[in-house]
Structures are given as C-alpha cells and as structure tokens.
Computed example of a mutant assay.
Amino acid sequence: MKTPPSGAGGINIVKIGGNVIENEQELDAFLTLFAQLPEPKILVHGGGKLASEMAKKLDIPIKMTQGRRITDVETLDVITMVYGGKVNKNIVAKLQAKKCNAIGLSGADGNTILSVKRPVKDVDFGFVGDVVAVNTEVITSLLSAGLTPVFCAITHDKNGQLLNTNADTIACEIARSLTENHEVTLFYCFEKAGVLKNVSDENSVIKEINLEEYRKLVENGTVSEGMLPKLQNCFYALEGGVHRVQLGKPAMLNPNETEFTSLSL
C-alpha cells in the first residue's frame, strides 16, 4: 500500500449506482450532497437500467451472461446514447443548477481513459473495455481549472472504438491514478446502506471490513454476486494507495452520517 504523499491535497471520487440515477428524487438528493462536497472532486456514473429500458423501446435484444451485459454493435449505440448523452448531460445540467461547475466526459474525451477490448475466453462480451491507462495530466488540469469531471461508463481504445466499461472499475482506476499527488477518498454510493450481514435486513450493516475479514465473508457466502466485484474493486483501490473507501447510500456523503461500510487493508 502506498503512503499518501506528504502535504497532498484531498480529493473525493464518487461513483453513483443506476438505482439512484433512475429515481428523479433520489438523484436530486444525491447531487445536492455531491455539490456540497469540497473541491476537487470527480463523479462517475453508469446507467445500465436506463440503457436496458431504451433497448426495449428500440426492440434491441438485451443479452446477459453471469449478470454481465453482452455489448454488441446495437447495444453499444444504445449505451453511448444513454450513458454519454441523456444521463451524463442531465447530471451535468443539474449540478450546474447547484453551483457545481461540472463537465461531462467519456474516456475518449481528452484521451482520459484508455482501454482494450476484453479478449474472448469462455464468453465473448463484445465491445467491453478493460482499463489500461488513465490520463492524470488531463484530469488534474480540469480540476485545477475549477471544473468537476463527470465520467460516464464509456472508454476508448485510441483507434476510434468506444467501449462499454464497468463504472465501478472506472472509479477505482481513476482513484488509483491520482494517489501520487492526492490523498484520495473513494465513495461507492448505491441503494444499500453498506455491506449487509443479511441482504434482507437493512439494519445489518457491517461498519468496518479489513482484507482478512473480507476473505472470510467471501468464504462464508455473505459477500457474493454483485457485491463481490464491487468489493474487489474497493480493495484493489486500497492496495493502489487510495486513502479511504466507503460504501453505502448517498447520505454517507454527509459528514455527520455514520451508517455505511468503511474498508481498510
């Protein structure tokens, strides 16, 4: 684990889940809290459910395997429209109304996030990207100019191809890339209050999880399915020098909130 650089300025990176994005009232409440966070800060979002709704309207089949989306050419078009267009610009406009000078980006803008198309192994995921590089110089210049980057879950391969990329992973990779010069806090905001001992009991939040405890939770099945890759990203971020990682509802962006899960090595 890296030691945060001496005298480094803090930066907050927040990833917001699709269940919040698709609820207008919850999204507005989240963006109010995000706008109140001190600068510099970065927001990362997906929008998978809204993309699925649009695909249905356009009569484009939704192909999934092991809970993951297969991104063919038509699906990539939908994702680009929804993530990079409707969702991203809606969020940016709402943040501007809240006095947060946001700028909407994909990984192709400013060559900020470079990916490679995921190789075909057991499954061909199509136009899905795995991040290989983050352009910290461009991101830092935007932050220095007083702008708040809002990244959608689209990257590129620098050969003209856009790629659908997991938003949790994008947030993690951006966070890791900025640890050389910043003390980074990474927030994963979603519809749950944190990591739960019992998925049907919102009051069973596990307040703190270290790497050893995480491995035990995986072994006993407490952490499984969609929470598994999310926590893998969390610990990968910590191993890369991220100072603090928190998971929970958007309310955890309020400094007085105590109901969330905090992760450590």
Rank of each mutant, 00 (worst) to 15 (best):
L143H: 06
A175T: 05
A8W: 02
K121V: 12
G9V: 09
G9S: 13
G126K: 07
E219S: 14
H45W: 09
T65L: 08
L147D: 00
G7I: 08
K89Q: 11
V205Y: 06
T136R: 01
C100Y: 01
G126C: 10
P255T: 09
N88M: 05
D122K: 09
D201V: 08
N12S: 15
T165M: 01
L231R: 02
S106L: 09
L247K: 00
G84K: 00
Q232I: 11
E26A: 11
C152T: 11
T169D: 14
G126V: 11
I154P: 01
T179P: 01
V92M: 06
S224G: 03
A193D: 15
L163A: 08
G126R: 02
G194A: 13
K2I: 14
E257L: 02
S52P: 01
V73D: 14
L163C: 09
G226T: 14
V199L: 11
Q232R: 11
M64A: 11
R118G: 07
G146F: 09
A97M: 13
F260C: 08
L196P: 02
K207Q: 09
T75L: 05
V138S: 02
L27D: 01
V123A: 06
M54Q: 14
N220C: 11
C189A: 15
Q66L: 12
N90V: 04
E208G: 08
S200I: 04
V134L: 02
G221A: 08
L43M: 11
K158D: 15
V120H: 09
F151G: 00
D168K: 06
T148M: 11
A108W: 04
L163D: 05
